[in-house]
Computed example of a mutant assay.
Amino acid sequence: MRPKILLTNDDGVTSEGLWAAYDALASFADVTVVAPSSQQSAVGRSISIFEPIRVTKIPIHNTEAYSVGGKPTDSVIIGIYSLNLNPDLVVSGINIGENLSYESIMTSGTVGAALEASNQGVPSIAFSLEVEDQGKKFDDPRYSEQNFGAAKTAIIDICQKLLKNGFPQDTDVVNVNIPSEVTGGYEITHLAEKLFFTGVEERIDPRGRPYYWINGPLCSDAEVGTDVHAIHEGRISITPITLDSTAYPGKNGLENLFYEDIS
């Protein structure tokens, strides 16, 4: 039987990256698209709990998709609990723009959707494609100039391997990043510390009041073995991620600090 895959993203249901992923996955699986109706990048794992979520079934790219008026996590929850899709796998992406390092996966809506799926008991993989020009992340995702060929090949291979063999022990999400130009194979990586050198630019509006842009250049490279370094070298980065954020080595230190108060 063909596996069932719930496909989502954070660039919106019309994103060219999402439909490139659909084309790849549909070659071997039954795929249902449940994705945000609009751009939701950098919302992380936020969830809509103060407003209703509207879902519209729309025809797009010769199939029917569910357009969700909410966050990527909302789309996953709707797909699992309202549409009762019972997927074997959740795939999030292809995101237009890389999702590397501690700071990126904590804010990424693409990775956030995958984390939510895993937390709900469904194995999940996030796919992101590097962009050379960071400004491309803010263009209309319906008309991307990215070449998705290498990403589509990676999606087929990686998803089929993991569906066949299962996820490695203690791995909740597999985070995959594809360089804009692939010159090597796969590299199993760990997260780099940073993707950007964070900065803030102050400007003055026409009324003389200050406003701010959070900005900063990309880190050009990182230590060997990290996802950032793999992409820099032209290799496809595959990083295992866990939902458990507990700092286990820190437990002993805290137990020593609070030993008199521990019952």
Rank of each mutant, 00 (worst) to 15 (best):
F28T: 01
I94G: 05
I60Q: 12
N177K: 00
L89T: 02
L100C: 04
T171L: 04
I125Q: 03
T153W: 03
R209S: 13
E145M: 01
C159I: 05
S41F: 06
S75H: 06
T153S: 14
T239Y: 00
D205A: 13
Y81I: 09
Y248S: 09
A192C: 07
Y102F: 09
L83D: 08
G17M: 01
I5N: 03
W19C: 06
T183P: 00
S144H: 01
N86Y: 11
I178C: 01
S245L: 14
T14R: 15
S15K: 00
E16G: 10
N86H: 13
F167A: 03
A154N: 02
K164C: 06
L100Y: 03
E64L: 08
P123M: 07
I156N: 06
K251P: 13
D221G: 07
G121I: 13
F258D: 03
V90C: 02
G12E: 03
K57F: 09
T239S: 04
N62W: 09
I80T: 03
Y22L: 04
I78D: 07
S92E: 06
S108N: 00
V76A: 06
N119S: 08
P240N: 10
A222Q: 06
P210C: 09
E255M: 08
L243V: 05
I204D: 11
V200D: 15
Y81G: 10
S220G: 08
L115G: 02
E116G: 01
Y143I: 11
I60W: 12
S118D: 05
L195I: 09
D205W: 11
I241G: 02
Y212E: 12
S82D: 15
T110N: 07
R2N: 14
G184Q: 12
V76G: 04
I204K: 11
N119A: 08
N215G: 15
D172G: 12
Q120I: 07
G135Q: 13
R203G: 15
A126F: 04
D157Y: 03
E181T: 13
Y248N: 10
V131H: 06
S144Q: 00
A151E: 05
D261H: 10
E260S: 09
D30L: 12
E202R: 15
N165W: 15
G184T: 05
R203S: 10
V182K: 01
A24H: 01
N95Y: 00
Y212S: 15
D221Y: 05
S27Y: 06
D170R: 10
N175Q: 02
R54T: 15
R207W: 10
K152W: 03
G121P: 07
I158H: 10
R209Q: 14
A20T: 01
N62K: 12
K136E: 11
R235L: 02
P52M: 09
H190S: 14
N86A: 07
